[in-house]
Amino acid sequence: MTQTIIWTVAILTVLGLLLALILFWVARKFKVEEDPRIDEVEKVMPGANCGGCGFAGCRAFADAAVKATSLDNQYCPVGGDEVMQKVASILGFTVAAKAPQVAVVRCNGTCANRPRTNEYDGVQSCRVKAALYSGDTACAFGCLGCGDCVAACQFGALSMDPETGLPVVDESKCTACGACTKACPKHIIELRNKGPRGMREFVSCVNKDKGPAAKKACAAACIGCGLCAKTCQHGAITVTDNVAYIDFTKCKLCRECEAVCPTGAIHGVNFPKELDKEAVKKRIADRKAKAAEAAKAAAVEPVEKKEVANG
């Protein structure tokens, strides 16, 4: 009995040593020389391997960053400026600050706003549903509600609201990696600047149908009336294909568009105060009146001047 134990121990020890030697030799023989900075860069990366930067993962990003001559073409949306500054300092580059972004769901076709016209009974996948038909409401552009975006989000920032049937973005978790924007077959989710203290304005609709059709399909649709574009003092709003779009780089968050929108398609979020529509409307009306007065005054001015202006 004792002998058996001794033999077993001996054989296992020898075997272990032998294998360790082989492993040591293989590790030596096949060692790949890598720029040590790749490891350093990888260490400061978020490590989510989400692919939001366009590379296969954090290490691929680091590898590309080390080989690159500048960081202009690379950006880690998850780590944001903080990580990019660290990467830059390791590699001796400088990077310009980029405004932090967040995913915005541009559909407000809640169950209440957008009546269902049929019942979908296929696999719960927006991609499959979109390939099949225009959707279970009269709006062919809106959210299909199967949650492909939720499945695509690696950070748990998206969830379906059972009440509205629409996805909700948790801003504290959203890293703006853009996975959801790619997963949405209707291209409803957009990455927009987070805005100062999270305040931002956006059109929560992408329906390109003409006004009456859009309105019939969904009570909260953008009907492309253009009132917002006319009201905007900053040239931030354009209306193409019967749907308005607010350029977040130009928007000054005055909330006038939100006040004048007849269907409530324009949403403002994270503002400290609730929007007083009447006050804003009055402000617009006053401004218009003033402008009209000014125009009148201009019209009263000598005729020659006007001709010059026209000529």
Binding site: R116, T117, N118, E119, Y120, G122, V128, L132
Partner: peptide, 10 residues
Amino acid sequence: MDKKYIVSPS
């Protein structure tokens, strides 16, 4: 269509 018919892939 008033009645909500089922729609699904084949």
